[in-house]
Design a protein around this nucleic acid. Structure first.
Length: 739
DNA sequence: GACAATACTTAGTATATGACGG
DNA sequence: CCGTCATATACTAAGTATTGTC
C-alpha cells in the first residue's frame, strides 16, 4: 500500500521554517536522477598504522585466545570463550567457512609480524608514488612501471586478505543470553579536551570602549562567543540572551557588576585572534601537519580502542565533548547557552570488574566505576543543557553495533511477512466505534504510507517545536475535498526531526479523510490531532501484532522494500557500469524522498555544476583529439609497421577508452546532480535531497546481492567504512538474497 | 498510568582529507 | 607542487523506545 505510492514519488516540499515559503509547485517527477559517488578507496585502505606497543600487545593478546594460560584473563572469561568456540564450530556449519580457517589456526601477529605489515604498507605507498611518476614519464620506463603496478596490486590484495583474517566474524558466533552485551570489557577511559589557556596579553576585550581584563572563566566563555561571530547564530536574540545570561554566571561579581549589556561588548580582538589561528593552521607546512596527524593517530591508538571479549574494537566517540555554546537546530529555545566543561568527577566509567580500570586524569577521580554488562557504553556523563545522558560507545563496525543493526533488518523482514494482515487490520479499525482505535488506525496509515516518524511527546520550551505522527497538531494539516485532480487530499506542513520541514499533499482513502476531519472538529490549531493516542499506546498495539514491531520498523521496512523494488525495476544486467550506478542512485533517491532526507545545499552548488559542465566539454575535446591521434597513429603504423608504432597505437587506444569512460561517468554525474537539484528546487529553494542518510534504513544485503547480480564491484556502492560496518552482510549475502 | 530516566539509533553540519587538474 | 573541490569522517543534536519509579 505504502510502497506503490512512493514509487510515484509525489513531490514533497521540505525545508526549514525560517526559509521562504515554498511555491508548492507540484512538478512532474523528474525521470532521471541519482548521485554518483566517486569512491576513492585505495589510499584509505593503505592507512599507515602507527603501531604503539599497546596495540601490539592487544593484538597479541587477542590472537592468543587459544592459549589462555599465557594471559591474565580470568578462568571465567577463557572458559566462556572456549565454550563459544565450540558453539561457533557447530552453529556456523551451514555458513561459508572458508575464511575462518586461518583464524582458527591461531596465527599470531607478533611484534615482528606487525612491523613487517607496517613496512609492507609503506612499500605500497612508495610504489604508488613511483607509479604515479612513471605514468607521466617516458614511454621506455613503462615496463618497469608495469611491474611495480603489479607489485602494488599484489600488496594491496595481500593487505586486504590480512585485514579480512583479522576481522572478528561475530556473526558466526552464538549469541549471548538475553540482555548480556559482553563478558569482558577493558578501555582507557575517555579523552578529555585540553584545558583553556588564557588569552595572550596583547589581545583585549573591551567593554564600553574600555579594556577589561576578564577572569579566566569569563574569558573562556567570551572566546566561545567571539569564535562564532561570523555565524548568524550570534545575531539571534534568543542566542544572545541565553549566552549573555550564562556568561554572566561565569563572571566574578565585579565583572557582573560592570558588564550589563552585551551590545557594549567588543570581542573584535578575540575574534581576530581566532581567525588568525585558523589561518596559521591552514598555512602550516607539510611537516607540521604530519606531526599533528601523527599525534592524533597516537591518541586514537591509546584511547580509540577497547578490548571487548578478546577483540580489539574501535570506539566511536572516545573524546569528551568540549565546552562551548550550545547550537540547537531550528528555533531552539536554549541556543546560545553554555555547554559546560566536563570533569572526570562527572563521568561514570563502565567496564569489567576484572579489567584494568581506566586511570582518571592526574588529581582527579571518576564519579563512579560500574560493571554493567547489560549495556554497551564505556563511559557516560550528564550534559547540562537538557540534562540528558551522553555516552561513549563503540564504532559502527563493532560487534555490538553490527549485531543490533542486523537484528533491526531481521525485524523489518518479519514485518514484510505480516504487513498485509496489519494493513487489513488498520483499514478495518478506521471504522471502529472507539475513537482511540480510529486515531491509531489513521496514525498507522500515515506512518506506513508516508514513513512518518512516531512522534514522541516533548517537553515544551526545552526543545525546538517539532512533531512526528502522534504529536501532529491541527495546524499542521489542511484537508482538501478535491485538489489538483485528486479527491480527499491531506496537506501536511510541519517541522520534523532537526526542524526539517515536511511538506506533502497526499490523496488518501476516503475513510481516512473523513476521520481526519472528524479528529479536527471543535479543535484549535494548537490542539493535538490525535488526542487519544501517543507513541506508547501505538507501540503497545504494534508489539501485540508482531513481536518487536514498533513504529520505526515501518520506516525500515518501507525504505528497504522500496530500494529492492526500484533496483529490480530500474536496472538491467546488460547496462554499462555507469548506467547501473545511475539506476542504483535513482533507487536510493526514491528512498530519500520517502524518508524526507535533506541537507543544506553546498554554498557552491551552481559553481560546481558549471565546473562539471566545463569539465565535460573539456573532456569531449580531449576525446576528439585522442581519437584523431589514434587514427593518425594507426595510419602511420600501417604504412611503416614499426613495433614502436604498434605500442603507440595501443596506448592511444587506451587513452581513447579512458576518455570515453570518464566522459560517460561525468555525464552520468551531471545528470544525476541536475536531477537531484530538480527534485530539490521543484519543492524548496534551499534544501537538497540527501540520499546518503537513508543508509540507516536500507538492509545492506539488498545492495550486496544487487552488486553480485549486476557484477558491480561493491566498492562502487559502499566506501571503506561502510564496508566495514556491513561486513556481516557482505560476508553472508548470496545473490539470491531477498529482503 | 504518568512521568522521568536510561539507552541506543538516526541525522544534519562542520571539518579533515586526499584526488585531481593546472 | 599547489590550490580547489568533492568526499569521508568527526561531531553531537535530536529522535525512538523501553524501563524504572512513585
Amino acid at each position: 500500500m505504502g510502497t506503490e505510492d512512493t514509487e510515484e514519488a509525489q513531490v514533497k516540499t521540505k525545508k526549514r521554517l525560517t526559509d521562504d515559503e515554498a511555491s508548492n509547485a507540484k512538478g512532474d517527477t523528474p525521470k532521471k536522477s541519482s548521485e554518483i559517488k566517486t569512491l576513492m578507496l585505495s589510499s584509505s585502505e593503505i592507512k599507515t598504522l602507527m603501531l604503539s606497543s599497546s596495540e601490539i600487545k592487544t593484538l597479541v593478546l587477542s590472537s592468543m585466545k587459544e592459549d589462555p594460560d599465557d594471559q591474565d584473563f580470568t578462568s571465567e572469561r577463557t572458559g566462556v570463550k572456549r565454550k563459544r568456540s565450540k558453539e561457533e564450530a557447530s552453529s556456523s556449519s551451514t555458513r561459508k567457512k572458508k575464511k575462518s580457517k586461518n583464524r582458527e589456526q591461531g596465527e599470531e601477529p607478533s611484534a615482528a609480524a606487525l612491523k613487517d605489515k607496517k613496512s609492507g604498507q609503506e612499500r605500497v605507498k612508495e610504489v604508488k608514488r613511483e607509479v604515479k611518476k612513471e605514468e607521466e614519464g617516458e614511454p621506455k620506463k613503462m615496463k618497469k612501471s608495469k611491474e611495480q603496478v603489479e607489485e602494488a596490486r599484489r600488496l594491496k590484495i595481500k593487505m586486504k586478505e590480512e585485514e579480512e583474517q583479522n576481522r572478528w566474524r561475530w556473526w558466526e558466533e552464538a549469541k549471548y543470553e538475553d540482555g548480556v552485551k559482553w563478558k569482558f570489557l577493558e578501555h582507557k577511559g575517555p579523552y578529555f579536551p585540553p584545558e583553556f589557556e588564557s588569552l595572550p596579553a596583547n589581545v583585549h576585550f573591551y567593554y564600553n570602549g574600555q579594556v577589561v581584563k576578564l577572569s579566566a572563566a569569563a574569558e573562556e566563555v567570551a572566546l566561545f562567543f567571539a569564535q562564532m561571530l561570523d555565524h548568524e547564530y550570534t545575531t539571534k536574540d534568543v542566542f544572545r540572551e541565553n549566552f549573555f545570561n550564562d556568561w554572566r554566571k561565569e563572571m566574578t561579581s565585579d565583572e557582573r557588576q560592570l558588564i550589563q549589556d552585551l551590545n557594549k561588548c567588543d570581542f573584535g580582538e578575540l575574534h581576530a585572534m581566532h581567525k588568525a589561528k585558523v589561518e596559521i593552521r591552514k598555512n602550516m607546512s607539510k611537516e607540521e601537519k604530519l606531526v599533528i596527524k601523527q599525534t592524533n593517530q597516537k591518541m586514537v591508538e591509546e584511547y580509540g580502542f577497547c578490548l571487548l571479549d578478546h577483540h580489539r574494537e574501535r570506539i566511536g566517540n572516545f573524546k569528551i565533548e568540549p565546552p562551548g555554546l550550545f547550537r540547537g537546530r531550528g528555533e531552539h529555545p536554549k541556543q546560545g547557552m553554555l555547554k559546560k566543561r566536563i570533569q572526570p568527577e562527572d563521568v561514570i566509567i563502565n567496564c569489567s570488574r576484572e579489567s584494568k580500570i581506566p586511570e582518571p586524569p592526574a588529581g582527579h577521580r571518576w564519579k563512579e566505576v560500574r560493571h554493567d554488562n547489560t549495556v554497551t557504553w564505556l563511559a557516560s556523563w550528564t550534559e547540562n543543557i537538557q540534562g540528558s545522558i551522553k555516552y561513549i560507545m563503540l564504532n559502527a563496525n563493532s560487534k555490538l553495533k553490527g549485531e543490533k543493526d542486523w537484528e533491526k533488518y531481521e525485524v523489518a523482514r518479519k514485518l514484510k511477512a505480516c504487513v498485509e494482515g496489519i494493513r487489513r487490520q488498520y483499514t478495518q479499525d478506521l471504522k471502529s466505534k472507539q475513537m482511540g482505535t480510529r486515531q491509531r488506525a489513521v496514525a498507522l496509515y500515515f506512518i506506513d504510507k508516508l514513513a512518518l516518524r512516531a512522534g514522541n511527546e516533548k517537553e515544551e520550551g526545552e526543545t525546538a517545536d517539532t512533531v512526528g505522527c502522534c504529536s501532529l497538531r491541527v495546524e499542521h494539516i489542511t484537508v482538501h475535498q478535491h485538489l489538483d485532480g485528486s479527491d480527499f487530499v491531506v496537506e501536511f506542513d510541519f517541522l520534523g526531526k532537526d526542524s526539517i520541514r515536511y511538506y506533502n499533499k497526499v490523496p488518501v482513502e476516503k475513510k481516512v479523510f473523513k476521520n481526519v476531519i472528524l479528529f479536527m472538529e471543535n479543535k484549535n490549531p494548537g490542539d493535538e490531532l490525535f488526542d487519544r493516542l501517543n507513541t506508547t499506546l501505538l507501540n503497545k498495539h504494534l508489539s501485540s501484532l508482531m513481536p518487536g514491531l514498533t513504529a520505526k520498523v515501518f520506516r525500515t521496512y518501507n525504505a528497504s522494500i522500496t530500494l529492492q523494488q526500484q533496483l529490480r525495476r530500474l536496472s538491467n544486467k546488460s547496462d554499462n557500469p555507469a548506467e547501473k550506478l545511475l539506476s542504483y542512485n535513482r533507487a536510493n533517491r526514491a528512498v530519500a524522498i520517502l524518508c524526507n532526507h535533506q541537507r543544506a545545499p553546498p554554498k557552491t552548488f551552481d559553481q560546481s555544476m558549471a565546473n562539471l559542465q566545463a569539465k565535460i566539454v573539456a573532456r569531449k575535446e580531449q576525446l576528439a583529439l585522442a581519437k584523431t591521434e589514434l587514427k593518425q597513429a594507426k595510419k602511420e603504423n600501417k604504412a611503416k609497421g614499426d613495433p614502436k608504432l604498434q605500442t603507440l597505437v595501443e596506448r592511444k587506444k587506451k587513452a581513447v577508452e579512458r576518455c570515453e569512460e570518464q566522459l560517460l561517468k561525468m555525464e552520468v554525474q551531471a545528470t544525476d546532480r541536475e536531477e537531484n537539484k530538480q527534485i530539490a528546487l521543484g519543492t524548496s529553494k534551499l534544501n537538497y535531497l540527501d540520499p546518503r542518510i537513508s543508509l540507516n534504513y536500507l538492509d545492506p544485503r539488498i545492495s550486496v546481492a544487487w552488486c553480485k547480480n549486476m557484477d558491480v564491484p561493491l566498492d562502487k556502492i559502499y566506501n571503506k567504512s561502510q564496508r566495514d560496518k556491513f561486513a556481516w552482510a557482505i560476508d553472508m549475502t548470496e545473490e539470491d538474497f531477498e529482503f
